[in-house]
């Protein structure tokens, strides 16, 4: 696997994502600056968490229009796996690679704690390390994580098995407790929780290690 982590101004989980990928693959991923217009030779792309461009205009809005995103949209449409975590999820909805939008948390508070998730679809390449209906604990840390889409879109996502994770105890008001969604072809995942923050007992959990191990095995 030749993963890449995209770095935007004010990304702050890019190094965590790199460590998680290195732990799972045995090799450091390429770090790619947002201002580049071409991607290196890569077969897995991570859009990390953070507050790219200070969340100006809308969370993820500016990053979604940065030069590297044109190449990423093209790659994603050709089938390359792309995962967006937290701010990365916001960026993916802003590019239109994933439906819906992430609104301000319903309770207005920044939510920063570990939450339980239910694996709703263990058939995707990103979730194959888990079994259907398994509960996992991932941290969340966001202000704009309230997943919103119209009822028709939500019905379609549920009907097509494109809800990857649901919150057990909804922390942000997300429609239908949705924590992570897949695109139509299953090669793009966006999720608000942070698997890269729980990859070792030293960090308080290992469910994220299983997540990265599963997706690396599925991609092999």
């Amino acid at each position: 696997m030749k993963p890449s982590v995209i770095v935007f101004p004010a990304s702050n989980c890019d190094r965590d994502a790199a460590v998680a990928l290195e732990q799972a693959t045995g090799k450091a991923p390429k770090m790619v600056w947002h201002g580049e217009s071409d991607l290196p030779d890569t077969d897995f792309i991570v859009l990390p968490g953070g507050f790219s461009y200070g969340d100006y205009l809308r969370s993820g809005a500016m990053a979604a229009r940065s030069p590297i995103m044109r190449a990423i949209v093209e790659k994603a449409k050709a089938g390359t796996p792309v995962i967006g975590i937290c701010n990365g999820f916001q960026i993916l909805t802003e590019t239109g690679l994933l439906p819906g939008a992430l609104l301000r948390n319903a309770g207005l508070d920044f939510v920063c704690r570990t939450v339980a998730l239910r694996v709703e679809n263990s058939q995707s390449m990103f979730t194959s390390g888990f079994s259907q209906g398994q509960y996992v604990d991932f941290p969340v840390a966001h202000h704009d994580g309230n997943y919103f889409a119209d009822a028709e879109t939500l019905d379609r996502l549920e009907g097509e098995g494109r809800v990857a994770f649901r919150y057990v105890d909804n922390p942000n008001g997300s429609a239908r407790d949705i924590a992570g969604v897949l695109n139509e072809t299953g090669n793009v995942l966006g999720m608000m929780p942070h698997p890269e923050r729980v990859i070792s007992p030293l960090l308080g959990g290992v469910d994220g290690a299983a997540f990265f191990k599963g997706l690396v095995e599925a991609a092999a």
Binding site: A61, A101, F148
Partner: peptide, 9 residues
């Protein structure tokens, strides 16, 4: 359409 507003919301 391209940047200033997000038509989803």
């Amino acid at each position: 359409k391209k940047l200033l507003a997000n038509p989803v919301m």
